[in-house]
Design a protein around this nucleic acid. Structure first.
Length: 972
RNA sequence: GCGGGGGUGCCGGAGUGGUCAAACGGGCUAGCUUCAGGGGUUAGUAGCUUAGUGCUUACGCAGGUUCGAACCCUGUCCUCCGCACCA
């Protein structure tokens, strides 16, 4: 066992002393390699980190070897809650906690052999870093992209602070999945990320990121085009957002989100007030994630809105299915054309108005109309879709037949029966007892009449129903009534006859002309709430003055330093307990004023750290634009999927903003992103709570960091889940030992020189390709195979070839196992394959010979046992009738048949060869070959084979491609 | 419901039209090795059966295209992940 401890320590020390990985501007082409920097927790690195960083380190080392100027640095996202909670719990100051944790991280990362340029390190908790957070905030403020607003915000009672939308997962806090987020109405700071929503959305297309991540961002931003429509309530206007203004004439109710602040105003002093309050409380108490699965529920609040076009009175409801977070928190209910509205209307017996007729064929349902025969129907072109057992028929009526159909049923309908059909409108035809026909098109005016007639005609059964209910309950009709498809407008006054697509535009512009609505784009993305009521974060540089209001701290006064002395046990924001900090003079009027005590969301810190790496010691500017423009954008970013809708949106937002304020000349931070898979053990993600954590440091101590690195990269491809198995790392360490031992190999012979050279050169090509494509596991498989080959064949290689290829092997392995390979003197330059030396033929030859010999050996073994019973030994590669027949026909002979190398070109020749063989069977065991090439191989190795088998070998002549000849092996 | 990824041996995982019972690794079984405490090496590891040849079956399930499919097409089931009563 080689002494990995000694070697690894030695090289880590050398790298550190020589500052091997420090980098600066140069004439070489740059490559910016970046991993998401970690939050330094007291627990140190976990296996996921180790995997993430190794993936990055391999690439960084590889790129360096190919001659690029690689920027690869590390830093710490060192503000954040755990440090503060530790302070509250254990009385350690967050600063001390953090310093200790960072030190530990650096040590661990060093011992993992990561090739960072440590001189560029940034720590977000240091004033020289967060000064620029504050500076950025002021820039946002200048551009009106930072604002303070009272708003309903998410509040986590356990973190004791508000949360951004992105930090709420299923109604729970992202840190505490068991803690329900509360809604509070607080005044907070926001960054106007929505201003960039379009840009963030559109430029996703040009990013070479995993599709899933891009799709998640699209979903998160989720722009939807629609119209804001004003409905008058009392003397005010309420705005409703809809993507379907074409259904405006179908609105039969308006629904508020229960927690909408307007609701209480509206019911104030009315008899509905108590009930509404009760209802709201009930809804708010419900688990938010479950609320979405509940049945629709709501109540009328006693008010009416005025329809902007028809001026009709529309009842206002509150309902659980309307959310405050989306749109305006108020929806217009169109039960005929929206599934949710339909369900709601059905439950509360609300009116439905069909305003869009489908392009579907007109349909009807013939009940008891025995006077109408199928032939009658067919005659006028009507199709019977379905015939039920009781004889009722569902029929489809083409447009041109509708009139004929109506005439036919009015003629043939027996008195006191009715029939209806649904096409572009819903038509009821009643035939009274006196033979009088009444034709009614269903709409809000005729509804009552139809109801009455239906009740008269049917009697009891109809009593509790209304025609809409009946239609919606009848499966056949309900499919037609409730739909969201395209069609032609009906019941919509001036707009009747328009396609609904056109109607969207027309109705919107009509509303616009009355000043009652306008087109907008609604985003799912909300403005970014950055205030946090916590201590261990970057102070927001704002001062509140009674006279001057909100006053930003002047840039020259930055940084607003976080005071060390605060009381962590106060229960509230510790920062507020330091009076020296909070009491301040107003920069404008010099009067007494208060400092903002909220700090920034730590995602602000991590939104631009990658820029600071390029110029981390700059005290005059946030960074030098020149340096940033040289290094950026990031050529390869690596990190976890969990940041898809958080950090990975924020850092794009910041980059775009920096471009707009002319700090940088690019608008996307990272062109390529790679997201590594989780590390699992026993099928579940490694985590403390699952108790299945393997500490990477333990593995490094036991097996060395090279072993750990190799193992992490070897088992599965970097983007898929890694299933940790304790046995695996042991075998890897055995393998590395073998690789090490090879350095001492003494070689003799030269038979395999050509093959070895061929193999190593192919390997160079494939490893290069596999690294570029993040298929590290396959690169390592190749390395292992070659190593094993070299090991087995070292006696047949010349020392020169051995040394050469061994060195290349080490060089290829270097990105993965840098310590060992450095010790064994690998090259510092990445090799390129010498294509001339790659010879597939001799590689094939060797494979072929060895498998042939194997076969022959087997056969000889058999022959020696019971020769008479040997019929055939076939490596069955080709399933063909012929082949099967051959086997039975040849069964009495003493024959050996070996076929190898089925290729597309030769595959079809085989039956012929076989046929020939049957006609002229050889006298002795035969080797029949499908290709001349193989015959040649055997021919050229005749002596070797004869020696091997101790017999004479008779070679056939290979006169043609189709008839390659035979090889007879004469065995005593 | 919408969107995305997957279903291959005891396990992790290769393989995307024919050299394939399935690379590489783990595990397990057995032999060898002056090997003693995660070492090296050889063989085996779908099922049935044989002294041995052999036969059958196989890449979630069911069809299809093809001389030929794990791989292409259609349907279906399952699973993982993201978003979601999005107005």
């Amino acid at each position: 066992m080689y002494n990995f401890r000694k070697i690894e320590n030695k090289w880590q020390k050398i790298w550190q002393q020589k500052k091997s990985f420090e980098t600066g501007k140069s004439s070489k082409k740059k490559f910016y390699m970046l991993e998401m920097f970690p939050y330094p927790s007291a627990y140190g690195l976990h296996m996921g980190h180790a995997r993430n960083y190794t993936i990055g380190d391999v690439l960084a080392r590889y790129k360096r070897m190919t001659g690029l100027n690689v920027l690869y640095s590390m830093g710490y996202d060192s503000f954040g809650l755990p440090a503060e909670n530790a302070a509250i719990r254990e009385g350690v100051h967050p600063l001390d906690y953090t310093k200790k944790a960072i030190k530990n991280y650096i040590n661990q990362q060093r011992s993992l052999g990561l090739s960072y340029d440590w001189s560029r390190m940034v720590c977000t908790h240091k004033p020289d870093y967060y000064k620029w957070d504050q500076w950025i905030f002021l820039q946002f403020l200048k551009k009106d992209l930072a604002y303070r607003k009272k708003a309903l915000v998410n509040f986590c009672p356990r973190c004791n602070t508000v949360l951004a939308n992105e930090q709420v997962e299923n109604g729970k806090c992202w840190r505490h999945h068991d803690t329900e987020v509360e809604i509070k109405d607080l005044e907070q700071w926001f960054l106007k990320i929505t201003e960039y929503a379009d840009k963030l959305y559109d430029s996703l297309d040009k990013l070479k990121w995993p599709e899933t991540i891009k799709e998640m961002q699209r979903n998160w931003i989720n722009p939807s085009e629609g119209t804001l429509i004003k409905f008058k309530v009392d003397d005010e206007c309420i705005e409703v957002f809809t993507t379907r203004p074409d259904t405006l004439y179908g609105v039969t109710f308006i629904t508020f989100a229960p927690e909408h602040p307007k609701v209480l105003e509206l019911v104030k002093g009315t008899k509905y007030e108590t009930d509404v309050k009760k209802f709201i409380n009930k809804i708010l108490l419900e688990d938010k994630s479950e609320r979405t699965e509940k049945e629709k529920e709501g109540m009328f609040i006693g008010k009416y809105a005025i329809h902007p076009l028809t001026k009709e009175k529309i009842p206002i409801f509150i309902a659980n299915f309307v959310l405050l977070e989306y749109g305006t928190g108020v929806v217009m209910g169109v039960p005929a054309h929206d599934k949710r509205d339909y369900e709601f209307a059905k439950k509360y017996d609300l009116k439905m108005i069909t305003v869009i007729a489908q392009n579907k064929p007109t349909r009807s349902y013939l009940v008891g109309a025995s006077a109408i025969t199928n032939e009658d129907l067919e005659k006028i072109g009507i199709k019977i879709v379905r015939r039920k057992d009781d004889g009722d028929r569902e029929i489809e009526i083409p447009k041109q037949s509708v009139k004929k159909y109506e005439k036919m049923i009015t003629d043939k309908l027996t008195p006191n029966f009715w029939n209806e059909y649904i096409g572009e409108e819903i038509v009821f035809i009643f035939k009274h007892k006196d033979g009088k026909i009444e034709r009614l098109v269903l709409n809000k005016d005729t509804e009552e009449r139809i109801d009455k007639l239906a009740a008269d005609f049917i009697g009891e059964n109809w009593n509790k129903k209304c025609v809409w209910k009946w239609l919606s309950e009848n499966k056949f009709y309900s499919d037609l009534v409730t739909h969201e498809e395209e069609g032609i407008l009906v019941n919509s006054e001036d707009f009747n006859g328009l396609t609904n697509k056109k109607a969207i535009i027309e109705i919107t512009s009509r509303l616009n002309s009355y000043n009652l609505g306008n087109k907008t784009i609604q985003y799912h993305l909300r403005d970014w709430l950055i205030s946090r009521q916590r201590y261990w974060g970057c102070p927001i540089p704002i001062i509140y003055c009674d006279k001057c209001g909100i006053v930003p701290v002047p840039e020259k006064d930055l940084p607003v330093k976080l005071p060390k002395k605060v009381d962590f046990k106060s229960g509230g924001n510790p920062l507020a307990t330091n009076k020296e900090f909070t009491n301040v003079k107003c920069p404008k009027c010099r009067g007494n004023a208060r400092r903002e005590t909220d700090t920034m969301d730590t995602f602000v810190d991590s939104s631009w750290y990658f820029l600071r790496y390029t110029d981390n010691k700059n005290t005059k500017e946030i960074f030098s634009p020149e340096k940033a423009n040289y290094w950026l954008p990031i050529d390869q970013y690596i990190g976890g999927r969990e940041h898809a809708t958080g950090h990975l949106i924020y850092f794009r937002f910041f980059t775009k903003f920096f471009k707009d304020i002319k700090l940088i000349n690019f608008d996307e931070p990272a062109l390529r992103l790679f997201t590594q898979g989780d590390v699992n053990k026993n099928g579940v993600r490694m985590s403390k709570s699952k108790g299945n954590v393997v500490d990477p440091m333990d593995m490094i101590n036991e097996h060395g960091s090279d072993s750990l690195r190799f193992y992490l990269m070897f088992v599965s491809s970097p983007d898929s889940v890694f299933e940790w198995d304790d046995g695996g790392i042991i075998s890897v360490s055995n393998f590395l030992n073998k690789l090490y031992d090879l350095s001492k190999a003494k070689c003799g012979g030269r038979e395999k020189d050509g093959i070895v050279l061929s193999k190593i050169n192919s390997l160079i090509g494939s490893v290069t390709e596999n690294i570029e494509n993040f298929k590290y596991n396959r690169a390592l498989i190749g390395i292992m195979e070659f190593t094993n080959y070299l090991h087995k064949n070292k006696d047949y290689v010349s020392q020169k070839v051995f040394n050469e290829s061994y060195k290349a092997l080490l060089t290829l392995s270097h990105p993965f196992v840098p310590h060992l390979t450095s010790e064994l003197n690998c090259d510092s330059k990445w090799p390129s394959p010498n294509r001339k030396l790659i010879n597939n033929e001799i590689e094939f030859e060797e494979e072929f010979l060895s498998s042939t010999m194997n076969d022959i050996h087997k056969i000889i073994k058999l022959i020696k046992k019971k020769p008479n019973r040997i019929k055939l030994s076939v490596s069955e590669l080709w399933k063909y009738d012929f082949y099967k027949r051959l086997k039975s026909e040849a069964s009495k002979e003493f024959k050996v048949l070996i076929e190898k190398l089925m290729t597309k070109e030769h595959g079809k020749e085989i039956p012929r060869i076989v046929q020939n063989y049957i006609k002229n069977p050889g006298k002795v065991p035969l080797v029949i070959l499908s290709q001349m090439k193989e015959l040649e191989i055997l021919n050229s190795n005749k002596k070797m084979l004869e020696k091997e088998f101790g017999c004479e070998i008779e070679m056939g002549k290979n006169d043609s491609k189709a008839n390659p000849g035979k090889v007879s092996i004469l065995i005593e």
